[in-house]
């Protein structure tokens, strides 16, 4: 009885909605901290961070938890919405819901669906490129030597130079395997790892002469949608988990609203900065 109650009942669906939602709020905060490096840090640091985020085992566990949360949150949301629509087969000829509830609270399903669409396009544009794109460039730096400009790969092997020119690399007896790994061909030993240049991809995406402006505007719009979703969602999760207390609830609501405004705002500033201000 109790076990099935924790999976199937209306309240159980609310618990899972709340838990996955709050976890995704944590994810948003972490993701934002990472993204802000695009403004406050340089390409090297950002790409190092990107490598860490795609290789560290602890992060990997968290990322799978995030994928699961997004999928479950969406699936649970669709299921709840379907049941809720079914609960009122005939609607009202005249309804006045703005008198008793907020826009956000009434449109969580629509806002959530838009966010899901955004997440999918966002993952195609960045996540999929980072993980699967065979043409993902490795980060290089340009060094001037005796009046000649030369490009070198930036690698985990600090201090050693790996020329970006393929023939020079070959001369040194090196080759790139698995897209990022530098191997000594003869000894068959991995010498270092290059950094996928996610920074370059990101900047190019938002600075693209054809679609950069559209991408930037779409991103900002998506953050508006996210803000509305969080405006209701954050405090709602606590209510669903049974946390409603005259002493703590005002703080939770206040924090939730600040979170709903600040996090999407900071996310949105990044592409705007890249498109309009980054040289």
């Amino acid at each position: 009885m109790a076990k099935s109650a924790l999976l199937k009942s209306s309240l159980a669906k609310k618990y899972w909605m709340a838990l996955t939602g709050l976890f995704l709020c944590l994810f948003l905060a972490g993701h934002l901290a990472g993204n802000l490096q695009l403004i406050f840090s340089d390409a090297s640091a950002f790409n190092k961070y990107a490598l860490f985020m795609t290789s560290n085992p602890a992060v990997k566990i968290l990322s799978y938890l995030t994928y699961f949360s997004i999928l479950f949150h969406a699936f649970d949301g669709f299921l709840l919405t379907y049941q809720n629509i079914k609960a009122r087969p005939i609607g009202y000829a005249k309804n006045n819901p703005s008198k008793n509830s907020s826009f956000s609270s009434r449109n969580m399903a629509v806002l959530g669906t838009l966010i899901l669409v955004f997440i999918v396009t966002h993952m195609v544009n960045f996540w999929a490129k980072m993980h699967f794109d065979k043409n993902m460039p490795l980060q290089t730096i340009t060094v001037e030597q005796m009046g000649q400009k030369m490009d070198y790969y930036v690698t985990t092997d600090n201090g050693k130079f790996y020329p970006a020119d393929a023939s020079q690399l070959e001369q040194m007896g090196l080759e790139i395997r698995n897209r990022t790994e530098f191997y000594n061909k003869q000894a068959n030993v991995k010498m270092a790892e290059g950094y996928k240049d996610l920074h370059k991809i990101t900047v190019a995406f938002f600075k693209n002469s054809k679609f950069g402006l559209i991408a930037t505007l779409a991103y900002v719009l998506a953050m508006f949608v996210l803000a509305f979703h969080l405006w209701h969602g954050f405090q709602s999760a606590f209510q669903s988990m049974g946390l409603n207390h005259p002493r703590y609830t005002p703080f939770i609501k206040g924090f939730g609203k600040a979170f709903a405004v600040l996090v999407p705002l900071l996310f949105a500033i990044i592409p705007v900065y890249i498109h309009f201000f980054l040289k």
Binding site: S10, K14, L80, A87, N100, S105, H232
Partner: peptide
């Protein structure tokens, strides 16, 4: 009571507060 509520076909709360 919650089981009976679900069986009756009522919808799920989304905390709109209406």
């Amino acid at each position: 009571m919650v089981r009976q509520m679900d069986e009756e076909g009522f919808g799920n709360c989304t905390n709109t507060g209406a």
